[in-house]
Simulated scan of single mutants.
Amino acid sequence: MPSHYQNDLFTELSKYYDEFEVIYAHTHDDARKSLGWNFENAHNFNSKTIGRDLTIWKIIPYLFKNRKSTHIVNGIWAESIFFFVIILLNLFQINFLIYSEASNPFKNRSFLKKIILRFVSVSIAKLLIIKAKGVLAISIFASNYFKDLGINDRRIYRFGYFQKEKIHLKLTTKKSCISLLFVGQLIERKGIFTLLEAIEKLFEKYQSFHLSIIGSGILKDNIQHFIKTQNLQNEVELLGVIDSQNVSNYIAQADLLVLPSVFDGWGIVVNEALQNGISVLISDQCGAKELIREGKNGFIFKANNVNDITEKLTNFIELSPHEKLEMMKEIRKMNQNIDIQIVTKYLVACVAHSLNQISIKPTAPWLK
């Protein structure tokens, strides 16, 4: 189920291939559409949605008709219908690649499902992907995951999530404090309390900063209680759910984006921050850490480590004007490497290499 922000990549890919089509597993629900997750908006590539434009029973003849095409499947287990598609691609001996994150260790599963996945999923996954021409691995975590499944490193291509630059005008009014921003679900996996505890420690030494929290989730009441009991009402603000367009505006006005997740397959918000010239503080368990050069365009801290994130926040707060200028230069360098056209060209090269059309394995531009 491709996300709405992948449409930029699909639009660029359609320029390279005469026959290019995106198949969605299903439409987004109303909640996601309200946040801007609507792939049905006008786009410049052909697409179909299973259940609406393409019934399950028509998938078999569809794949057989397109058996000479190369297919890229988003994940192994993410959507049951895509799991079925991978089986068919193997049976029909059709060229395909897998585009996937690593397995989410925090995903809620029943006890029975955990047991089944532990003892069966690895074996099934190996059988399903053994004939894949390649794997587009979302971050080092997915790369290691597929290596553990026995995929040769030559067939693993590092990838991520990328979108077209969405530059927003940054207000030039003089700030009285440093603006920190968190964007994400208020759930345990996002590590929000690691950040809040660091803010509490920082408040003992600094008062010239403010944290805005965008998002909602089951920890909302706990967070409100923490803010109140620690007397941080002036330093921390809960903004709730905001649509994607306005989130982009908040990112553009921030000084530092913080992604403290205990695990995140990637974190597209990191791309958007960098594209708007905003530094990033990210945990070492987020895939998008690959875009951060320690102390140059941001900072990386050990997940769940309050002391480490506090130290990195302190480092950012105490940056001199010259150091901030140098950091901005490094951010611009990274932006050149995650430009959607550069990334698309790299993806096309990955597909060509997987099909033995070129001999030299391409290197991800953001890792050079």
Rank of each mutant, 00 (worst) to 15 (best):
M1E: 13
M1S: 15
P2G: 11
P2H: 09
S3C: 09
Q6A: 13
L9I: 14
S14H: 11
K15A: 10
Y16F: 15
E19W: 01
E19D: 09
V22I: 13
L35I: 02
E40C: 13
N41S: 14
K48A: 12
I50K: 00
Y62T: 04
L63Y: 02
A78D: 11
V85L: 01
I86L: 04
I87G: 04
I87P: 05
F96C: 04
I98L: 06
E101V: 05
E101R: 01
N108D: 14
F111W: 13
L112Q: 04
I116K: 07
L117Y: 06
V122F: 14
V122M: 08
S123L: 11
K126N: 09
I138T: 08
S139M: 06
A142H: 02
A142D: 04
S143R: 10
N144Q: 15
N144P: 02
N144K: 15
Y145R: 08
K147A: 13
Y161C: 11
I167S: 15
I167H: 14
K174C: 03
G184H: 04
Q185K: 08
L186W: 00
L195G: 01
I199P: 01
F203H: 12
Q207R: 14
H210N: 09
H210L: 10
G215F: 00
S216E: 15
L219R: 03
Q230A: 09
Q233I: 08
E237I: 05
L238T: 07
L238W: 04
V241R: 06
I242F: 08
N249A: 14
Y250M: 13
A254K: 07
D255Y: 03
D255I: 01
P260I: 06
D264N: 12
G265K: 12
I268Y: 03
V270C: 07
S283D: 06
D284I: 11
D284T: 12
N305R: 04
N307Y: 11
T310A: 09
N315P: 07
E318K: 14
S320F: 09
E326Q: 14
R332W: 05
Q341Y: 05
A349H: 10
I360P: 00
A364T: 02
P365D: 05
